[in-house]
Every structure is written in structure tokens, then in C-alpha cells.
Design a protein around this nucleic acid. Structure first.
Length: 646
DNA sequence: AGCTTGTGTCATGGC
DNA sequence: GGGCCATGACACAAG
């Protein structure tokens, strides 16, 4: 179940990314909240790489297994959101919108039954005219919504060369009135239906092909359109575009009849086209009303014509999406790119590196001589006495006899170590046995332990050499090379504790020591200062280590994101190029089809004035090119402005 | 001599 | 309120 959920989530993200490429924004956060770790951005600033976030609450849980509370790898959790944002910011390629028609429509069986006989039974077509009132009424009956695809104008059903009088063509305004048929297919049915619904709906769509009287012209059109639509596979589009475009360009001339009249295009019933030669046959008024530049029945001329063309045309806008979706599911190149780029990083957020760090560190520690470890511990001022016994403290025996509970095993970080809080500082350990255990000293994330082994050349030599100037400790200059300033101070004040002891002993024990040993105020102050400085020194070391780790992690992330960005940009460029080629091809096909249509006067339609429009129900109608009304509105605005001025 | 780097220390804020 | 921790800032030493 988890795998299925993961697969679904990844597919959803991929789909979102791909939809974003075509301008569709989908918010999937709500869908992913149940699977992926909540994408809460914490890296809000340069200093927030290690904010005090209680990640440790997950440390002992399944989700937080292996996650160090302050590990910089936690930042990778948030890479997924940034990657998605990056993809979205890349923009989206645009389809060429000059082609706003699809030569597809659905021809139900009832339509054939109704319209078939109309060619022979239409007795009113002799007039070739239809009253505008009727037309308007009919349109009002069948066009509930005056959508952009439907033009409701006064048309004149002049008797064209076909003689059927079924052509609705307004000569003066060159406007075309288009009617919807009685089929109850809603306008938004295709647009809002799912892919499966679209497919089932498109199954009834017949092909838009040339009439049967031009059988040679209809041979390859279905295949051509199928080829065209198959190009929507973005993976193979680029190398195939040119080839298929050339194929279509060469074959379209023969694929579409040049002698298709506008009347034929307007005929609704299959019988009209089937008997297109008999252009003098009358039609009924209602059939004339329906025969308004509709090409829905063209395909019916060829009863055995494959619906692939119409299906492909109607499915074009959906096929693109479907093919893209299919690419996602099939791990195609683009999807694979996104997989590699996005989800690999998401999957790599498991912080598995911590385990390797731990193992490698333990291996390193195992191979080190304990005596060497003692020497290394003595590098830091606080670590000088971390070796067994607390060598210099004159009161060491006194300490041991005081049954104090110290945590000298923590020579390193107390803040950065996740175990330092729980293991050493809480338990009451015998002083004599608590000193040297190496295995409890070297924590994987301890700055003063792990780093000393990993980078001894950086930290060790200078620590041995360095000694801050002390004007008040001139008497201890001989030992400055070995002892820290606080060590010298502790010796000068005759404190019976080493610096490490002072620093690492629990608070209760420390307070007990302060109260129970009769120290002078100066000694108490020095003890507190030594403890404070010692803890702060380790904290500073850990802080610097974390800062370096954070910088390193961010640099690596930047490099990864740059590589991924370049890859996505290349994909975007390729997709835009492909879309442009497809759009050009579609425009060319549209022009070719329009050039083969005739109006009632027998003149070919001007492709610059007409377009092919695919209705929501799959019908294809011829529409006049919309004239932008910017000029008129601009004139009105200008007139208004002028009037106001006057 | 100036710069860089590493380190210790202090001050401060949050828990 | 005190202790602890993290971190910026500063100073210092060494390369």
C-alpha cells in the first residue's frame, strides 16, 4: 500500500510538473501531505541552518531514525518544494492559437436517420432562402448558450451551386450562422469530462473526410491525422516533426478533395453528402437550419471511413495532455528527467549518510591507539586533562574521594552531541572509573573528537601551540605550551579540579562543590568562569563545525540545482520547439481544408477569413475569423474622451 | 605588512 | 531565575 501510495504521489507530482509546462497550475500539496514529510521550510536565512528545532523528538521514532537533530542533511527535505517551484518558474510553452477549429464532430445514429432522408425530402430548398426569423428562432432553440463558437447572425441560405440551398452564408457580412443540433451534448462536456469520458465520447465521432466521390482523396487523411496526433508524444516529437510535417505537406493535397463545396460542408445528414452530386434535391426547413457550415456529416459520406481522423482531431487538445500524462506514467524521457531530477533528490533525503558517518567513525576509532587518543584530547585547553586521572590537579585524589559524579567522558561537544545530554551528564558515575573510557568519549558528531581525527592537521597543531597572552600568569610561562589559560589559573588558585572536571560535572555537583569546599569568592568566581568558558568553547567549536557543514551542504545543493535547471531548460526548449512545429502543421492543414470548401457561389473559402472550429460535442463548423473589436472600442473610448473634453 | 584562518572569549537570546 | 546552548562579534596568534 505504501508503495502504491508513493507511486501515486510521484505520478501526481510529475503530472503537475508537466501540466505546469502547458500553463496549468495544480496544487498537489494537499495530496502529498500524507506521504512525504511535511515540507516545512526552515532554512530561512543564512543563520538558520541549525535552528533550535526539536528534531530530536523524532530521533527515537521510525520517522526520525538516524536523523541527527541538527544534521544539515535535513535541509534536503525541503529541496522538493524548491524544485517544484523552479519548474513552475520555468514558464510554459504556448500553443499556437491561430488554429481554433477541429474538423470533428459526433454523428449519432439518430442524426443519420433524421438527416438522411432530408436530402430527398426537402421540398422547400428550391427557394434557397430561409427567413431570418426562423433561423433565429431555431438557433435560440438549439443554442442555449451563445458561446464563442457559435455565431448567431442573420444569414442567407442562398442556393449555392449545389442547389440544395442548405448553405448558410451571409455574403454582405461574411458571417456565418452556426447552429447546434439537438444532441444534448453540453458545451463543456468534453472540456470537463475525464479522459475516459472523452474517449468514450469520441468513439462516436466520425471522420471528416472527403466525399465518396473522391475516394482517392480520402485514403490517407485518417492516417495523416493519426500520424499528426501521434507526434504529440513529446519524446519522439522532435526528430519526427520534420519528417511527418513533410509527409503531411505532400499528402494533404491528395488527401482532401478540392471540390468539396461549402454546401457539402454544411450538410448535416450523411445522405446529403452521400448524394452530394444531386445538389438540387430539396431539404426541409429544419434541415436547412441545421446545415450551417457544419462539417459534421462529411465523414458520413464515406460510410466505412475510419473515424481516426475525426477522432484524432477532436482528441488533439486532449491527446496532448493524455500523451503527456502517458509519458509520465511510462517514464519517458521527460518524465524520466523529472524523476531523476526531482524524486531522486526527494528519495535521497533519507539522511542515510549519518549511518555511514557513524560506522566510519567507529572504524577509525577502533584503529586508533587509546594513548594517541589521550594525546589528542590534550590538544584543547579543556581536553588537556581529559586523560585518565586529571593529571595535574593536586586535588585529584580529593576529587576521587569525594565520590563526585562527573562526566569526563565528554571531552567534546555537549551541545552538538545528541548523546551528550542523555548519557554522561545525568548518570552518577564514579570518578575513578569515569575518566578514561574512550568508547564513551568519541561520539560521531562531537566536534572535538571526530574532527580531530578527520582533520588533525587543522586543529591539532595550533591548539598545542596557541596560548593566549596572559599578563597575570607570567609565573606559569613555562607550562603555557601545554596548559590552557584556565588550567594555569586553576593551578594558581589551587583549585582541586581540572578544567575538564569543572566543565563537565553536572550542575548539581558543581554547585555542591562550590558550597561544600569552602572556596574563597575568587575561587568560586574562577570556577564559574572556567566552567562557562569551557562550555562556551566547545559550543563555539560545534557551532563552527555546523556552519562549515551547512555551507558545504548548500554548495552541493546549489550545484545539483544548477545541473537540474540546465536539464529542465533544455527540456523546455525542446518542448516549445515541438509545439511550434505541431501548431504550424495544424495551421497548414486547416488552410488546406478551407481552401477545398466552396461557398454557395462556388468560390473557395478564404482561409484568412474562415477558420474551423470544433464544438464541445465534437462537431466541426466553419466560422468566420473573428475581428478584434479593439479598434471599435478604442474609437468609442476616444469619442467619449473627446466628448468629455468638449 | 597585510591577509587569511583557526581559536578562544564575550555578549546575547532562546529554551 | 539560573543553567545551558547556539551564535554573532571581536581579538589574537600563526601561517
Amino acid at each position: 500500500m505504501q508503495i502504491a501510495k508513493k507511486y501515486f504521489s510521484e505520478s501526481l507530482i510529475q503530472l503537475t510538473i508537466l501540466l505546469s509546462l502547458i500553463g496549468v497550475r495544480v496544487d498537489i500539496d494537499s495530496y502529498l501531505s500524507g506521504y512525504y514529510t511535511p515540507l516545512t521550510e526552515i532554512n530561512l536565512g543564512p543563520s538558520s541552518a541549525y535552528i533550535q528545532t526539536p528534531f530530536h523528538i523524532l530521533r527515537d521514532t521510525f520517522d526520525g531514525y538516524g536523523v541527527h537533530p541538527k544534521c544539515p542533511e535535513l535541509d534536503y527535505f525541503f529541496a522538493s518544494r524548491r524544485l517544484l517551484d523552479e519548474v513552475r518558474t520555468l514558464g510554459s510553452p504556448r500553443f499556437h492559437t491561430q488554429l481554433n477549429a477541429w474538423l470533428v464532430h459526433e454523428v449519432p445514429a439518430t442524426d443519420k436517420a433524421d438527416c438522411g432522408p432530408s436530402t430527398s425530402n426537402n421540398t422547400e430548398s428550391s427557394s434557397g432562402l430561409e427567413s431570418p426569423g426562423e433561423e433565429s428562432r431555431d438557433v435560440s432553440e438549439h443554442l442555449p448558450v451563445s458561446g464563442p463558437a457559435v455565431y448567431q447572425t442573420n444569414i442567407e441560405l442562398g442556393q449555392g451551386p449545389c442547389g440544395a440551398g442548405a448553405c448558410g452564408f451571409l455574403k454582405e457580412e461574411e458571417d456565418v450562422k452556426v447552429k447546434e443540433e439537438e444532441e444534448p451534448a453540453p458545451v463543456s462536456q468534453l472540456a470537463h469530462s475525464s479522459t475516459l469520458e472523452q474517449e468514450s465520447l469520441l468513439e462516436g465521432i466520425t471522420a471528416l473526410s472527403s466525399p465518396t466521390r473522391h475516394p482517392s482523396a480520402t485514403l490517407d487523411i485518417d492516417q495523416q491525422w493519426n500520424n499528426l496526433l501521434s507526434v504529440a508524444d513529446l519524446d519522439d516529437l522532435d526528430p519526427l516533426v520534420t519528417e511527418r510535417l513533410s509527409d503531411l505537406d505532400t499528402d494533404i493535397t491528395s488527401a482532401i478533395s478540392r471540390n468539396v463545396s461549402l454546401h457539402d460542408a454544411m450538410l448535416t445528414s450523411p445522405g446529403v453528402f452521400g448524394l452530394a452530386s444531386d445538389r438540387t434535391e430539396p431539404r426541409t426547413t429544419t434541415q436547412q437550419q441545421r446545415a450551417l457550415f457544419r462539417m459534421e456529416s462529411i465523414g458520413s459520406l464515406n460510410s466505412d471511413a475510419s473515424p481516426g481522423m475525426a477522432l484524432g482531431l477532436a482528441a488533439l487538445p486532449f491527446a496532448s495532455v493524455c500523451n503527456i500524462t502517458g509519458n509520465v506514467s511510462s517514464n519517458s524521457a521527460l518524465g524520466g528527467c523529472l524523476d531523476e531530477a526531482v524524486f531522486d533528490q526527494i528519495n535521497q533525503l533519507g539522511l542515510e549518510g549519518l549511518d555511514s558517518i557513524d560506522s566510519s567513525l567507529m572504524d577509525c576509532l577502533d584503529s586508533i591507539d587509546p594513548r594517541v587518543l589521550e594525546d589528542l584530547e590534550s590538544d584543547s585547553g579543556l581536553s588537556l586533562e581529559s586523560s585518565s586521572g586529571g593529571p595535574v590537579s593536586p586535588g585529584s585524589s580529593e576529587m576521587s574521594s569525594s565520590s563526585s559524579s562527573y562526566c569526563e567522558d565528554e571531552c567534546g561537544a555537549t551541545g552538538y552531541s545528541s548523546e551528550a545530554d542523555s548519557i554522561p551528564s545525568k548518570g552518577i558515575v564514579d570518578y575513578t572509573t569515569a575518566w578514561p573510557p574512550v568508547e564513551s568519549v568519541w561520539h560521531d558528531h562531537s566536534y572535538s573528537s571526530a574532527n580531530f581525527f578527520n582533520q588533525p592537521s587543522v586543529t591539532l597543531p595550533r591548539k598545542n601551540i596557541k596560548e593566549e597572552p596572559l599578563s597575570d600568569d607570567d609565573g606559569f610561562r613555562l607550562e603555557e605550551g601545554e596548559l590552557s589559560r584556565d588550567e594555569l589559573r586553576a593551578r594558581a588558585m589551587c583549585l582541586p579540579f581540572s578544567v575538564l572536571q569543572i566543565v563537565n560535572m553536572p550542575v548539581e555537583e558543581f554547585l555542591e562543590v562550590l558550597d561544600g569546599h569552602g572556596f574563597s569568592p575568587e575561587q568560586v568566581t574562577l570556577l564559574r568562569d572556567i566552567r562557562r568558558r569551557g562550555k562556551n568553547k566547545l559550543a563555539a567549536q560545534n557551532c563552527r563545525k555546523r556552519k562549515l557543514d551547512a555551507i558545504t551542504g548548500l554548495q552541493e545543493e546549489v550545484e545539483r540545482l544548477q545541473v537540474q535547471r540546465d536539464k529542465l531548460l533544455r527540456e523546455k526548449h525542446l518542448t516549445a520547439k515541438t509545439m511550434g512545429a505541431v501548431g504550424h502543421q495544424i495551421r497548414q492543414l486547416t488552410r488546406d481544408i478551407l481552401s477545398r470548401l466552396r461557398d454557395e457561389s462556388g468560390t473557395p473559402l478564404n482561409p484568412d477569413r474562415f477558420t474551423l472550429q470544433c464544438g464541445a460535442n465534437g462537431r466541426v463548423v466553419v466560422q468566420p475569423v473573428r475581428r478584434p473589436a479593439v479598434s471599435t472600442s478604442g474609437n468609442k473610448t476616444d469619442k467619449r474622451k473627446k466628448g468629455k473634453k468638449q
